[in-house]
Design a protein around this nucleic acid. Structure first.
Length: 106
DNA sequence: TACGTGACGGCGA
DNA sequence: GTCGCCGCCACGT
């Protein structure tokens, strides 16, 4: 019966992230909780860091619980993420996003 | 085998 | 607002 192989934590994380609707953001801890990982927010960060090239995952919609981008503002990845977020109407001010306005609340 | 590190979170001072 | 400490798990050296 259960030939269904239980998806790995990483796969579960990727599934949750892919379910984030455009124009919304979620925190690492939120992804961890939704994926059934509890408080392993760190695991989410590592899973995203292990993403292979050519993935189709909206990783840029995942930010810190305090609304800050998870990259230093002087990094290339930071600008990339800000650009992608702005493209969906998410306003990034001073390296952070208004969680009160853009947080995805399923 | 052991230790350090990391796209984090929450709390206290 | 900042800073430090701890927890939690996987990976590289």
């Amino acid at each position: 019966m259960n030939d269904t192989p239980a998806p790995s934590r990483e796969q579960r994380i990727w599934q949750v992230v892919s379910a984030i609707p455009p124009g919304k953001v979620v925190s690492y801890g939120q992804v961890a909780e939704m994926a059934g990982l509890g408080r392993q927010a760190r695991f989410v960060g590592r899973a995203l860091g292990r993403l292979p090239a050519g993935h189709n995952l909206p990783w840029f919609r995942v930010i810190r619980s305090n609304g800050q981008i998870a990259f230093p503002q002087d990094s290339e990845a930071f600008r990339r993420q800000v650009a992608l977020l702005a493209r969906e109407g998410i306003e990034v001010v001073n390296g952070r996003v208004s969680m009160a306005r853009f947080r995805w609340n399923p």
